[in-house]
Design a protein around this nucleic acid. Sequence first.
DNA 1: TAGATTGTTAATCGATTAACAATC
DNA 2: TAGATTGTTAATCGATTAACAATC
Lengths: 210, 210
Amino acid sequence: MPKQKDSIPRSVVRRLTGYLAHVQELCAQKIDWTSSQELADAFGLTSSTVRQDLSHIAFSGTSKKGYYNTRFLAALTETLGADRGWNVVVIGAGNLGKALVMSEELQRRNFKICGVFDCDEKKIGKRLDSFVVQSMKELPASIGNLNVDIGILAVPASTAQQVADLLIASSIRGLLNLSLTHIVAPQRVKVVDIRIVSGLLELTHAIKDR
Amino acid sequence: MPKQKDSIPRSVVRRLTGYLAHVQELCAQKIDWTSSQELADAFGLTSSTVRQDLSHIAFSGTSKKGYYNTRFLAALTETLGADRGWNVVVIGAGNLGKALVMSEELQRRNFKICGVFDCDEKKIGKRLDSFVVQSMKELPASIGNLNVDIGILAVPASTAQQVADLLIASSIRGLLNLSLTHIVAPQRVKVVDIRIVSGLLELTHAIKDR
DNA sequence: TAGATTGTTAATCGATTAACAATC
DNA sequence: TAGATTGTTAATCGATTAACAATC
């Protein structure tokens, strides 16, 4: 009997997000079954790791056959909270903010962009896709009214913490940080860092002596 | 005597990239010294972890004072390969690709965009910032001519592996993968995944029962 | 000197892997 | 049934933390 509680380790959650995407694709291709070994191969893991990961979700496989994809997908979707819609605001109307606002991927995954904000007077009032860029001053009221769950920080490192503080004060629940600073937040606000420049530096470190 | 070799664990490298950005900022503010405790506080770590991390780089602190920032920065820069320029191509001329091509951050950090490519016939030949979007067919020749180090994959998941294979065949050294698939590559090609959607799912998982 | 902070060793903690009985 | 694959326990591996002697 798999258990759900006891909070899933972060390393496991990260892999589950990968499995979700993979199994979604298998379902789209009308492939009924997957095995732990198959999944492991697809992600460069061991089948042992995959089975350990799946022991954290409320779902069981079938001896000799593996995992039945539609039920597997449902379990992953439920576990990750991808079975419902989420209200998101984007802060920063630069190129990166724009890319996120216009991302079909996010819409397809039930992330609903509820507003776009910026500090820059020159950008406020301008259109960005179907949105009008709003002033940061309107942020607190909007967050409350729109029942926003997640804030995406697509702002320069220098203002990221300041903007985060504003969102935190407006009782946001999660922050996706695309700047390269570390964001300090109280425990009740979950922060995930997406560090593109860090990723590039990981690469340059790895390849520099070859 | 700190040692350099023995390859630095990935978890450590990831934190070093953060320290680099932080110390850069301290230098810009003309702050001369940092301590392991100060750094730890800035990133939510223990001072012990910070000191362990720094034992991997060719640089020593000073008892009672901590780390002298300009020398610290130089050591981090050298270790991460941020002391030289890198040639980069961007594959995918969508919104995300555009955001990267126009990113001042990347330019400031010596990543030189050498070309932008796309599969989509409609985009080929169009301008994107100061670039003309090229056909994927021109990719192999360009990679060779331009001495490209890194490819950034800003393409849909469905074509990511295919594009990666093309880059790998053209002897690229590193790939920054912004799609949400896992990329299979030979050992000589280093792959780093930047998974924005995964990050959002990590958030929704964390906040869904609160 | 006294005190603070490093560098490093040893202890702890957590995550991955191996192994195998249970099962369909 | 025989064989394949799961779920789980135990073993290994690696990363983080604690502790403290060395040092300026």
